[in-house]
Design a protein around this nucleic acid. Structure first.
Lengths: 221, 221
DNA sequence: TCCGCCTAGATTGCACACAATCTTCGAGAC
DNA sequence: GTCTCGAAGATTGTGTGCAATCTAGGCGGA
């Protein structure tokens, strides 16, 4: 996913990272000159980055009126989670036959570290959880060896910026989410695609409940 | 989907139409100046059109080496059809509760005309079938009222240019395909989402068989 | 004869300038 | 006081020029 050869490529990555990191709140205006200055390039690569991120669903472009970070209604958010429910369990099931012992070890280690970092206590660091989560899911996508499915899923996942942190998780849901990761690795190790599919489905529905609740609270304000 | 306000928007539509119509064979080089002259605009909107169509999957861009019409291996094609099998039946089921009497009448009329135009005989016109087919499926997408799913499906459908005509269908498969359309309308009218889902699944698998066979034949040459 | 290198042409990547459009803000009429 | 109209400023859309990169073809050496 990371690209660096051209100035436009760097702009895409940098801007995506800025948005995902939360530097721009949802709905924020993305002026071309402002971004050009910030990224140290001219407007041309910025424009290209914006159109590409618009295709990913991260930003919205209205002709003659510029780009904004996408906003998501509760209904749209639910739609995205329905889509994920369709795609990601299937993807996980497809990953099963391709997982080598080395893959399993890496996933195991990752899931274990996430439990350590995520569990309430002195060592808890919710911000550190996000990149690990991305790595975990990315690894599964890679193992599935299914570019078409992966592409469809990527646009569905990137889009709802809401899910960019774990701070919205209550303790129960967070524990469940972390346990799901461990269980998915177990299912992979057992070579049982249906088990893996089921856990991933639960994983997404759990996330859906958290996100929809958070979005509803935010929308009512 | 159609946009016309800006020069770039027109370029996107025009270029997509040219590719879908088959003016550029798969793998054809898309020079920027060549397209700029052909579309009557400068390179800037052409470049934007190319990046947008790259996001749709219609063209592939390699940095510093320009754009080409996407090529599809048999494996990739099968992947796309798997994805469609996941998405489109679900979409059809979702359409059921939203179909009004007027919608049903329009779909009925459309499916009927397709049978007339598509059946072997003096009135057969396979090229006229394509826009009608697009209209039929677009109507279903619209009725499903599910933007996220629709978006994911759109990129999956546009991409395999192979399916841009009905000439690859043998007579048996074509009859089945046309009958599926009629049956889907019947399922909608009956308000039976599972029936609709099942027929759509069959519809896609039928198309898959045709396309994969055609692609294999083409690839072996 | 074949391989590697180098130059010339062509093509893309980026920056900048101007044109078109939108937004803002204030004045004037009702 | 509110609404409409209009002009100035700001922002996006498009065209064009130059630099960077790639491709093709010829030349020399092994």
């Amino acid at each position: 996913m990371t690209q660096a050869a051209t100035s436009s490529g760097r702009a895409v990555d940098a801007l995506r990272e800025l948005i995902l990191k939360g530097d721009f709140p949802a709905g924020a205006r993305l002026g071309e000159v402002e971004l050009a200055v910030r990224l140290g390039v001219s407007r041309t690569p910025v424009r290209e980055a914006l159109t590409r991120l618009a295709a990913e669903g991260l930003v919205e472009i209205v002709p003659n009126r510029g780009a904004r970070v996408s906003r998501w209604t509760v209904a749209e958010l639910e739609g995205v989670f329905e889509l994920r429910t369709l795609l990601e369990p299937q993807l996980t099931a497809l990953a099963v036959p391709h997982a080598t012992e080395a893959d399993l070890a890496a996933l195991d280690e990752l899931a274990g570290r996430m439990v350590e970092v995520g569990c309430p206590g002195p060592g808890q660091d919710l911000d550190a959880l996000m990149p690990m989560n991305r790595e975990f899911h990315a690894k599964l996508v890679e193992l599935a060896r299914h570019p078409a499915l992966a592409g469809a899923l990527a646009s569905a996942i990137h889009a709802p910026i809401v899910l960019r942190n774990f701070h919205t998780y209550d303790e129960q849901s967070l524990r469940r989410s972390l346990a799901h990761h461990v269980e998915i690795v177990a299912a992979l190790r057992a070579g049982d695609p249906e088990w893996a599919r089921a856990v991933m489905t639960a994983h997404i529905r759990n996330a859906r409940a958290v996100m929809v609740r958070a979005a509803e609270k935010q929308e009512s304000t």
